Simulated scan of single mutants.
Amino acid sequence: MSDWNERTIGDVAAVFDGPHATPKKTTDGPWFLSISSLDQGRLRLTESAHLSEEDFTKWTRRVTPQEGDVLFSYETRLGDAALMPEGIRACLGRRMGLLRPKRDHVDPSFLLYAYLAPQFQAVINSRQIRGATVDRIPLVDLPSWPIRLPSLGEQKAICSVLGAVDDKIAVNERIAAACEALLQLRFAELGMADEPDDSQAVPLTDLITFNPKLKKPSAEEPVYVDMAALQTSRAGIPSWSRRAPKSGPRFMNGDTLMARITPCLENGKTGYVDFMGDEEIGLGSTEFIVMRSRPGVPSELSYFMARDARFRAHAIRNMAGTSGRQRVSAADASNYLVNDPDPTALGDFGQQASSAFAHMKSLEGESRTLATLRDTLLPQLMSGRLRVKDAEKFVEDQV
Rank of each mutant, 00 (worst) to 15 (best):
24 K>Q: 14
26 T>G: 05
26 T>R: 14
27 T>W: 05
27 T>Q: 12
28 D>G: 07
28 D>V: 01
31 W>I: 07
33 L>W: 00
38 L>G: 01
41 G>E: 04
46 T>I: 09
46 T>H: 12
47 E>H: 12
50 H>C: 04
52 S>Y: 11
53 E>W: 05
60 T>W: 11
66 Q>E: 13
67 E>C: 09
67 E>K: 11
67 E>W: 02
68 G>K: 03
69 D>Y: 09
69 D>C: 07
71 L>Y: 01
74 Y>P: 01
74 Y>K: 04
75 E>R: 14
76 T>C: 12
76 T>F: 13
76 T>H: 12
77 R>N: 13
79 G>D: 09
81 A>P: 04
83 L>P: 00
83 L>A: 00
83 L>W: 00
84 M>H: 02
86 E>L: 09
87 G>P: 02
87 G>Q: 03
88 I>W: 01
91 C>H: 05
92 L>D: 07
93 G>D: 00
93 G>K: 00
93 G>I: 01
97 G>C: 06
100 R>L: 03
102 K>A: 13
102 K>R: 15
102 K>V: 10
105 H>S: 15
108 P>F: 03
109 S>T: 12
111 L>W: 05
112 L>Q: 08
114 A>Y: 03
117 A>Y: 04
119 Q>F: 08
119 Q>D: 15
120 F>C: 10
121 Q>I: 09
122 A>Q: 15
123 V>A: 10
124 I>L: 14
126 S>K: 14
131 G>D: 13
134 V>T: 08
135 D>V: 11
135 D>K: 10
136 R>N: 13
136 R>E: 11
138 P>A: 12
138 P>D: 15
141 D>N: 07
142 L>R: 06
143 P>L: 04
148 R>I: 11
148 R>Y: 12
155 Q>E: 10
155 Q>K: 09
156 K>Y: 03
158 I>C: 06
158 I>M: 08
159 C>F: 05
160 S>N: 06
162 L>I: 10
